[in-house]
């Protein structure tokens, strides 16, 4: 199906999320809530030698929020922290490759913002 929003990448990550759970011995961790809808994403990561050695997410949310968190962990694992810090929200949204209304941008960026807070 060729849906502009619920593309295969979104549905796939929603139905079969990557890195779901909590990282053991995490040294960066944060939970955020989207106050509009109550969606909640928890991100945990273990940083070794200024790189994300391991990252996981868990939480409740819509397909966009969950798929975005899943894609985020897939994209950032093994990456240098400094590179993630520099990543803009636009750049991240580009990776997801979907068109979002302003209301849904918040959903897609919930995990991203949480990770940014966690590695601050």
């Amino acid at each position: 199906m060729n849906d502009p929003l619920y593309r295969e990448i979104i549905l796939e990550n929603f139905e079969h999320p990557q890195n779901y759970g909590v990282v053991k011995n995490a040294n960066a961790e944060k939970t955020s809530v989207n106050e509009l809808c109550g969606d909640k994403i928890h991100i945990s990561a273990r940083i070794v030698n200024k790189k994300i050695a391991e990252i996981a997410w868990e939480g409740e949310g819509c397909a966009i929020a969950r798929a975005a968190a899943s894609i985020l962990t897939g994209e950032t694992e093994g990456q240098p922290v400094v590179k993630i810090k520099k990543m803009t929200s636009e750049a991240f949204l580009k990776k997801m490759g979907i068109t979002l209304t302003p209301a849904r941008r918040k959903c897609a960026l919930l995990g991203f913002a949480t990770l940014q807070e966690a590695i601050k």
Partner: peptide, 10 residues
């Protein structure tokens, strides 16, 4: 199996 927001979106 579908989040309320996704239902609302569609």
């Amino acid at each position: 199996g579908v989040h309320a927001h996704d239902v609302g979106e569609i």
